[in-house]
Design a binder for these strands. Structure first.
Lengths: 190, 190
DNA sequence: TTGGATGTGTTGACTAAGCAACAAAGGAGA
DNA sequence: TCTCCTTTGTTGCTTAGTCAACACATCCAA
């Protein structure tokens, strides 16, 4: 739906980016983001360090890209990118964000402030883009920026709460309880 | 032991060869060798067809290389490349060849004449090289070419018999019964 | 027989990846 | 403070991989 810019790419580029991404995600599982050097990534990816810089400005850009790719996959898996606003789709989106963030917090070694804030920025950007896309398809011509922003922050906040909870409650139950509070501001787009 | 020519290689070369080999071995598990085209290999390896020809003359050369690499790994796994002639090492070698050939015959789709003969040539070359290496370390200065040849063919023959047997007997028992017939010609090198 | 479809092997021009070397910026410790 | 060491970005040159196009061989069916 949203334009897919990866198809017509030089195979060498696809391969290299894939290697970098895979290595980075593997490394994130063992060490925390701050202690991962570009060297570490290129060593485990078995590519040259200079090649890394041909693709990413630095490791922060890599993190941004990595997070957004993973999240995009999560969304595509649930085909949330090819639909419009309904309470049920919203419910699935909240579920997706909770699970995604939950997975990050269990599979990445001790997340740190900087790491978390970069993740937050990326994910919120994606949620906002998706919601805007949904709302603009509605017959209602109400401007969507403000409702989409409110919903985006609310959703991320819920997922953050969920993923930081030590003993996580049953996800479905959690989402069903929270859903109405988010949906109330979007009813006009249903 | 035998010189290891792969270490100081351009990383791109290692990667490309690895991709080609893996794809080829995967394809061998599904289709028989004759029906695998160079195109098939490069497609699944996600490399350009021209790149294939920069590494291998044709698919027959690839088969040779693939078989010899797999066999070399089998030998290295058992550290048979770093030892000398003893009846026990010989026993392990026979075991290795039987298992290797057995694995090929179960994991590769319907082997054909051409395929089998290419495999045979490669494996015998490797066995012969290894045996020569062993025998030439012996104190006895007896020429080793003839005994090594006899043993090589005998070993391959045994493994071939074993791997073509429908209901394979217990491997250990099979080898213990055959071992003396091969060892008798090598006693002088012990 | 002809023609389309498919595979082979090769070529030359272009582009990405590798490499070694560099300056510069921190960090840790004596 | 000074030095030693590691990491960061960057650069110019070399080499490997990509691409499109080519001529040629098979094969099979119209």
């Amino acid at each position: 739906m949203l334009p897919n810019p990866d198809e017509k790419l030089d195979p060498r580029v696809k391969r290299t980016r894939g290697l970098i991404l895979r290595s980075f995600e593997d490394l994130l599982a063992e060490k925390n983001f701050e202690t991962i050097s570009v060297q570490d990534v290129t060593d485990t990816a078995q590519i040259n360090r200079a090649t890394f810089y041909a693709h990413f400005q630095d490791k922060y850009a890599l993190l941004d890209y990595s997070i957004s790719q993973m999240f995009k996959q999560e969304i595509e898996k649930r085909t949330l990118n090819a639909c419009h606003y309904t309470p049920d789709n919203l419910r699935n989106l909240i579920l997706a964000v909770c699970e995604f963030l939950g997975r990050i917090h269990t599979s990445c070694a001790q997340p740190h402030q900087q790491f978390e804030s970069l993740v937050e920025t990326q994910i919120k950007q994606q949620i906002f883009g998706l919601l805007s896309h949904w709302l603009e398809q509605s017959k209602s011509k109400v401007p969507s920026e403000i409702p989409a922003t409110v919903a985006t922050w609310a959703i991320y906040g819920l997922a953050s709460l969920y993923s930081h909870t030590k003993k996580r409650p049953a996800l479905e139950k959690f989402v069903d309880e929270a859903l109405p509070l988010v949906a109330v501001n979007l009813e006009q787009f249903a």
